[in-house]
């Protein structure tokens, strides 16, 4: 009986306490933000949408590598010697055409891992959050400003240049061979000369293939990162890859040929 009474008392007491609290809240100011009309001031670091300032992009693919969900898709074309792509606002030299820079915001997990490695700070999170669409494909945002014609031209030029270079190299090689043969024939044991020539040729051929990567990482981060950048450029998969491979192959062959010539020359001299 006593318990029943105390329970009843407790029930009413706690119910009235609760009702007092809710009644107080009935007249406190509400916390609602009436969204389309009122908007919260968003903090500076807010992560809402990825944006790429394509003018500053050097096509280093660090962001693509950093993405855990593979929502960034980048394609680059090596620029030819006759084109100057200029510099980014951070002073990096641009060596690659970026013919494709698609970000699929439907896949994006907003982790911001891509933003941090960027050497030129061209990929950023921006304060834009009303971009719902009806078709999921509309969430793929292309950032490259190259037209198909420009891409085609860049590819063509690259091919032409690669062709021209390999032709040049062959000629150089032929010349070297001839020279070496001539030297060997001449009986002079001057091994340094052909070596010089060969390495000179190799830098010419392979240099431009690597510089893109070097530019990408070299200035932006420490040694480790530069290594990544370099390997990136070397391992890049798309349009310019074949050209690069071809260039490297040509370089390797040239070096091998030079060494062979050297060995033969030595043998002969002995």
């Amino acid at each position: 009986m006593v318990k029943a009474l105390s329970d009843t008392y407790l029930t009413f007491k706690t119910i009235f306490t609760g009702m007092g609290i809710t009644f107080r809240h009935l007249f406190t100011k509400s916390v609602t933000v009436q969204y389309p009309v009122q908007r919260d001031v968003l903090p500076e670091r807010v992560r809402l949408k990825l944006h790429v300032n394509i003018d500053d992009c050097i096509g280093c693919r660090l962001c693509e590598r950093a993405c855990p969900v593979e929502c960034i898709d980048i394609g680059t074309i090596k620029s030819t010697d006759d084109v100057d792509l200029g510099e980014t606002s951070t002073g990096h030299k641009k060596k690659l055409w970026v013919d494709k820079f698609d970000i699929d915001m439907a896949k994006c997990c907003y982790c911001e891992l891509c933003v941090h490695p960027c050497p030129t700070d061209c990929i950023t999170m921006v304060e834009e959050y009303e971009y719902s669409v009806y078709d999921r494909n509309d969430l793929i945002f292309p950032f490259s400003d190259m037209t198909p014609e420009q891409i085609e031209e860049a590819n063509r030029k690259l091919e032409e240049e690669a062709e021209a270079k390999s032709r040049k190299k062959e000629e150089a090689m032929l010349a070297k061979k001839k020279k070496a043969e001539a030297q060997a024939a001449g009986g002079e044991a001057d091994g340094d000369k052909p070596k010089d020539a060969a390495s000179g040729g190799s830098t010419e051929a392979g240099g431009s293939a690597e510089t893109g990567g070097e530019e990408a990482g070299g200035e932006g981060a420490g040694t480790e990162k530069s290594g990544t950048g370099k390997s990136d450029a070397e391992a890049s998969g798309d349009g310019d890859a074949d050209a690069e491979k071809a260039a490297r192959r040509a370089e390797r062959e040239a070096r091998r040929a030079a060494r062979r010539a050297e060995r033969e020359a030595k043998k002969k001299s002995e």
Binding site: L42, P43, E44, R45, R47, C109, Y110, C111, E112, L113
Partner: peptide, 12 residues
């Protein structure tokens, strides 16, 4: 959290 990291739920 949003001020510090930029995200409200999944911060990284």
């Amino acid at each position: 959290f949003e001020k510090a990291s930029g995200a409200r739920l999944l911060y990284n």
